[in-house]
Amino acid sequence: MVPIKSLEKSRPKFSELPLAPTDPPASAWGLWGDQDELGTLNLLTTDVVRRAAKEVVNGETIPLNLPLDEFIQPMNPLRKPCSHHIIVKGHANDDELDINTQGSSHWDGLRHYPYQESLEYYNGVTQEDISGEELNFKAGIQNLAEKTITGRGVLLDWFSWAQKQDIDIDHFSRHEIPLEQVLEVVKEQGVEFIPGDILLIRTGWIPAYRALSPAAQVALSRRAIRTSCGIQASEAAIRWHWDNAFAAVASDTVAYEAWPSTKPYGVSMHEVFLSGWGMPIGESFDLEKLAVKCQKEGRWTFMFVSVPLNIPGGVASPPGAVAIF
């Protein structure tokens, strides 16, 4: 592992990506080795974790996970809602869950969304590698589970900032949040990023969803085009994420970037982050209590711990995420 002091020196500039001319746009394949399956989680060195532990002052914990059954119908109608069955054994109880791992709060793992033109995943893993006849766990979610996503979390409360700016937002449209607005939030909150930070962005999607009637919630999930607000996937925004060396990113929306992506850079953030850099994307995180706590404390950083499910060859996972103050 690379010590925190040398992380910035060891990473190429964004203008140097891709590292090989035949690799997909903005990819960093081979940066951590041709067989690497951790991607940007390599930034979470022991030095980074020890530094993150200094964020813990009073020991208060705030979970960042929605209930598994929060969505009556997950935002893709092909994804089944959570089903919970209690098995009464007479002397004790067991229970069984039937879930889609993207049906509530979750991490998109490195098997989720390839470069759409070549259908290649991180470090050149192919669909045949993932679903061929020979059992293969390449780029599976088990790598995230065994590493854990532990470091310093940073919340950018764009929604609170946008309300003060009287910005009108329809959370369920493809409302793009430009980098310029993100930078205004960074400035207002006085945030300074450190390599290996885990970035969380609050858009207000969750309270907007909860304000809908049950019927409207179901209708939202069954739209022909699943639009939602999120970060604009511009070249400047993608470059900014690389330059700040985030280990992972997450938000309270259903796609992090505005969806469907308009791909102003030619490829979506999902393609670059997941399959170019090996950077997990968290979606549908519950950031409401966290925003209140950060505002009360007057600080926007905290220790962040997430232990995904250890599913060999898995695509995604509930985050099991907590912010510790």
Rank of each mutant, 00 (worst) to 15 (best):
M1V: 11
K5S: 13
S6A: 08
P12R: 07
L17W: 11
P18V: 09
L19K: 07
P21Q: 12
P24R: 02
P24L: 00
S27I: 01
L31H: 14
Q35W: 10
G39C: 02
G39P: 01
T40D: 10
N42I: 07
N42Q: 13
L43C: 06
V48Q: 12
R50H: 05
R50Q: 11
R50A: 11
A52R: 04
K54A: 13
V56A: 11
N58Y: 09
E60L: 10
L64K: 12
L66E: 15
L66Y: 10
P67F: 06
D69N: 09
P74F: 05
K80P: 00
P81K: 14
C82F: 11
S83L: 07
H84E: 08
H84R: 14
N93C: 09
D95N: 12
E96W: 03
L97Q: 11
T101Y: 12
S104Q: 05
S105V: 05
D108H: 15
R111V: 00
L119H: 12
E120M: 04
Y122W: 12
Q127N: 03
D129R: 06
I130K: 08
E134I: 01
N136S: 07
K138V: 12
A139D: 14
I141K: 05
Q142I: 06
L144N: 02
A145Y: 06
E146C: 11
T150D: 09
T150S: 15
R152S: 08
D157V: 01
W158F: 13
S160H: 15
K164L: 03
I167Q: 11
I167T: 07
D168H: 10
D170G: 04
H171G: 02
H171Y: 04
H175R: 12
E176L: 02
I177K: 09
E180Y: 13
V186A: 07
V186S: 08
E188R: 13
Q189H: 12
P195W: 07
D197Y: 14
I198Q: 10
T203Q: 13
T203W: 05
P207S: 12
A208M: 07
A211V: 05
P214M: 03
Q217P: 02
Q217G: 07
A219G: 08
S228R: 04
Q232P: 00
A233S: 15
S234K: 04
E235F: 13
A237M: 10
I238L: 07
W240Y: 08
D243T: 09
A248W: 03
A248G: 12
V249H: 09
Y256M: 01
W259L: 02
P260N: 02
K263V: 10
S268L: 01
S268Q: 10
M269A: 07
H270V: 00
H270E: 10
G276L: 02
W277T: 07
E283A: 05
E283F: 00
V292P: 00
V292M: 06
K293W: 15
C294A: 15
Q295P: 01
E297L: 13
G298V: 06
R299Q: 15
T301K: 15
F304T: 07
V305I: 08
S306K: 04
N310C: 14
N310F: 04
G313S: 04
S317C: 05
P318H: 10
P318D: 03
P318A: 06
I324F: 08
F325N: 15
F325K: 15
